[in-house]
Nucleic acid binder design. Sequence first.
DNA 1: CAGGATCCATACCGATACTG
DNA 2: CAGTATCGGTATGGATCCTG
Lengths: 135, 135
Amino acid sequence: MTPSTRRPPHGNRGDLFDPQCPTRRLLDRIGTKWTSMAIKVLAEASPQEVRFAELQRRMTGVSQKMLSVTLQGLTRDGLVGRRVEASVPPRVHYRLTPLGLTLEEPLARLREWAEEHMAEVDRANQRSQEGTADS
Amino acid sequence: MTPSTRRPPHGNRGDLFDPQCPTRRLLDRIGTKWTSMAIKVLAEASPQEVRFAELQRRMTGVSQKMLSVTLQGLTRDGLVGRRVEASVPPRVHYRLTPLGLTLEEPLARLREWAEEHMAEVDRANQRSQEGTADS
DNA sequence: CAGGATCCATACCGATACTG
DNA sequence: CAGTATCGGTATGGATCCTG
């Protein structure tokens, strides 16, 4: 989106409000269901690697398919590194890249906000619920 | 998005991994297409209020419906305040609540990361693209 | 063990039409 | 002006089966 240093009065079309907006694209990625959790788990393990099955154990509820898809996306994005042990059975190890580690920081800020304020969000929702619960 | 159907039978690693994980629920919200942009625009205007139509002008590409839905969600969550001018035609003004303002800060960190690193993510994707010897 | 392929339910989102 | 209602396309994500 628009760099924080710039504050156009209004009507700043073109620049960073278009579909190529990097922030929207980033949110499209980390907004997918398992991505941020994968990053968190890998960040907690870092610099240790984590195997696929162990990752699945630590990410409660994720299916094999979704974990695979999520890791593929993160690997394509250069956020996660993938190392295959050519053994039988194969062992695949994942870890955050340096780039992925830099993303973990702002993501952690977001987690902190969530842990600190989501209860208040819930209360606001309950109040709205009550407001619409008319006779 | 929130997986309320899945209930892991065993305990999980930390309270943040269950379906009620506040971070995931937060990402479900700000991950929707227009939410983060609305927060950004309202934050830029803060403490000024912004009317519906003006909001739509500043959020390039958003439809009336999606803006309405987005603002309803943010209002229910207590992140956005809504003031209706009882005039004809009606005028509705929106602004970030103090809670919404606190969210803008970690969101800005995420934007900064995106502006700084998404180009590198794109390059990683292009490399993956080339590596895929398809068809 | 790790993941590909397939089917499918749902949610998101856009376009359009209609109100007070 | 500021919504609400409805329809439908599409992407996301889950369950299941299959493979090297």
